[in-house]
Design a protein around this nucleic acid. Structure first.
Lengths: 227, 227
DNA sequence: GCGTCAAGCATTATCGATAATATGTAAATA
DNA sequence: TATTTACATATTATCGATAATGCTTGACGC
């Protein structure tokens, strides 16, 4: 989520040499992304520190970063809680996502002609998950799919901006209130995949913009998730 | 920096009830934005802590946040420096910025009909600075102008994504290598301002996309800055 | 000459303890 | 009763010190 240099490059060479703060951050992200820490949940520094066997410092650092990323929010001398996204936040994110993923489609399409690689894998995974009817897992899979497209664009700025939106949390929240069958939702991504593998930048941009624009909460759309 | 609470300075306004980490963060942002900390400048925790009269902890927290915001970058156990962008990064950012600022123009235009407010103020400030031939100050003013447009869109997600690009640093770097006269650069923003005040979303989006697309480094364009 | 390895150093990463403070509760006051 | 004040409490904010680690340099064997 916060790579030091190009995260697109060699992940294999970089050993898991991470700070405790990094681990704490990843732990919290996972808890939120998997719905165990619901929006509004208070996060107490010493409690989490004890739970993870660290001191308060790494937890505070993780909080700082997550706060900057908009995943949690703090009030000085009072406390920190999982950010409770209002519907307005979900609405606001849509045009921004549409624009970013449109750019991603444009840049990625020429690289994915005939074989969308990770994007195709993510699509298949999403279909598998859809059959299990696990909405939380589906939200995660959908996020993975869209992230794979962003990654395929090979543009660090794009990835950075997209990450800043905090799609994971939005996806979770929207999934909770959307009753669309998961298999239909997953299937609606096929057209995106096909547009990318067609390799036409204009087509890919258009399809992605439209697809993401359908994520407006409150409206009935094929994809149950906003991610 | 320790004993200042008793001061009866500003009773009317909200007291500066912020953490030291916040103050350290703001200090660093200002140093970067005004070019006193150039890209690549190493930031040593204890040095800054001593300079500001705090301990290491608040400085580390500020680093974490700024790192998440993309302004600085850290390598574990080695050090932190002002984000040093390669030319590829500047190139990559252009289509992303163009898309984001296009959305901003679309959203902001209806709100700025006839009077662009802060955006106009920023434009005038940019013109003033351009006459002084202070390229660093101009870079700052240009960033302000574009940020004002993003703000005018009143979309938190948009602001978040735009901030993540680290425009401040890009602007400073591009200004260093761009020989275009500042007054011409400033003037090139007039069409953007006018499009916004015209209140036409389509026009504003189009003008902004084109304007920002001209920020490709290495090419000769009217605006000396990439921000 | 070249590669390997072992201190030493500079700097960060983490800890445990202490200070500071926002908030809720209840007494004091009118 | 309504309002203010004082205080206790829970939690964060900050500190100073120590541990851990990546980098550099130079010795050493080949």
């Amino acid at each position: 989520m916060r790579d030091h240099r190009g995260s697109v490059a060699n992940v294999s060479t970089r050993l898991p040499r991470v700070t405790l703060a990094d681990q704490v951050r990843d732990f919290i992200v996972l808890e939120i992304a998997q719905g165990r820490m619901a929006p509004g949940t208070p996060l107490r520094e010493l409690e989490i520190a004890e739970q993870l066997g660290t001191s308060q410092t790494p937890v505070r650092e993780a909080f700082r970063e997550l706060s900057a990323l908009g995943l949690i929010e703090s009030r000085i001398h009072v406390g920190t809680r999982v950010r409770d996204l209002a519907e307005q936040d979900l609405v606001d994110a849509v045009p921004v996502r549409a624009a970013l993923e449109g750019v991603a489609g444009r840049l990625a399409a020429p690289r994915l002609i005939g074989n969308a690689g990770d994007v195709r894998d993510a699509f298949l995974a999403m279909q598998d998950v859809a059959r299990t009817d696990d909405r939380l897992a589906y939200a995660s899979a959908s996020t993975q799919f869209h992230r794979a497209i962003i990654r395929a664009a090979h543009n660090e700025s794009l990835l950075r901006a997209w990450n800043a939106l905090g799609i994971e949390v939005m996806t979770i929240m929207a999934m909770a209130s959307n009753p669309i069958p998961l298999e239909d939702a997953a299937e609606s991504h096929r057209v995106v995949l096909e547009a990318l593998e067609a390799g036409d930048p204009d087509l890919a941009e258009d399809v992605l913009r439209n697809h993401v624009s359908g994520y407006l909460p409150g409206t009935v759309h094929l994809d149950g998730d906003p991610a």
